[in-house]
């Protein structure tokens, strides 16, 4: 059965382009031009994944509203935010509204498809037992490459897909500096330095929410970031 992707985007051209790309990829696509229309459609049946533009026509933050309403109905529904503005990355503030990923419109369609596939993979992986081969242990860190999930001291850290890949890139080789370009490549995003910085900042904050003493991601000024294993391994 085809997976259903809902695109909520006020710009018709973008909406149709994305729809065409996803259809080509074998997904069933439903597009909605506004929050109201989307909610009407979702009332009957929820799609398998939702891509939401943050500003929807008259509502500059209509995407947030929609995300909250959807999250209220389903905790598992994968949600991706799309935005034309970099600044909204911070406004969303750690995806506390429950989006699974957060992408700018600069992203190429190929990258976007990769994200969507990855998200579906993560959802599926959650229902399967952990694959020990894809699991990395770095001291208190456990990184599940199959489920795309991370835990610290046994507690899951709720990271977005981008954040997961950043942590994955840094932590795979402790002590090695990963520069921004490498991180961007890993995360399949085209972001400027500031965005990488704020991603890393957000990642640290999420870890620190669990363990205030967290200090494993170190900045190497001018170069990038590296993983410092506090246990010494």
């Amino acid at each position: 059965m085809k997976k259903t992707i809902a695109i909520v985007e006020d710009e018709a051209a973008i909406r149709d382009n994305y729809a065409a790309a996803f259809t080509r990829e074998g997904y069933a696509v439903r597009s909605h031009a506004s929050r109201r229309l989307a909610l009407q459609a979702f009332a009957a049946r929820l799609p398998d994944l939702v891509i939401i533009d943050i500003s929807l026509g008259e509502e500059p933050e209509g995407g947030y509203e929609l995300c909250r309403e959807l999250r209220a109905r389903s905790a598992e529904l994968p949600i991706i935010f799309l935005t034309a503005r970099d600044s909204e990355l911070d406004a969303v503030s750690g995806l506390r509204l429950g989006a699974d990923d957060f992408l700018t419109k600069d992203l190429s369609l190929a990258h976007l498809l990769a994200r969507v596939n990855a998200l579906f993979r993560r959802v599926e992986a959650l229902t399967q037992p952990a694959d020990a081969q894809q699991t990395i242990h770095r001291g208190a860190l456990t990184l599940d490459g199959g489920r795309l999930q991370i835990s610290w001291n046994g507690q899951p850290v709720l990271l977005s897909l981008t954040e997961f890949w950043i942590v994955h890139a840094i932590a795979r080789h402790p002590g090695h500096v990963r520069n921004r370009q490498q991180l961007m490549d890993a995360a399949n995003v085209v972001l400027d330095d500031n965005t990488i910085t704020s991603h890393v900042k957000r990642i640290r904050r999420k870890f620190q929410a669990i363990d205030p003493a967290f200090d494993a991601i170190q900045t190497v000024y001018g170069m990038g970031y590296r993983w410092v294993d506090p246990s010494g391994n």
Binding site: E11, A13, I14, N17, A20, A21, S108
Partner: peptide, 10 residues
């Protein structure tokens, strides 16, 4: 620009 790009990619 996104419209142009996604159109080109399609």
């Amino acid at each position: 620009l996104t419209i142009v790009r996604s159109s080109l990619e399609n």
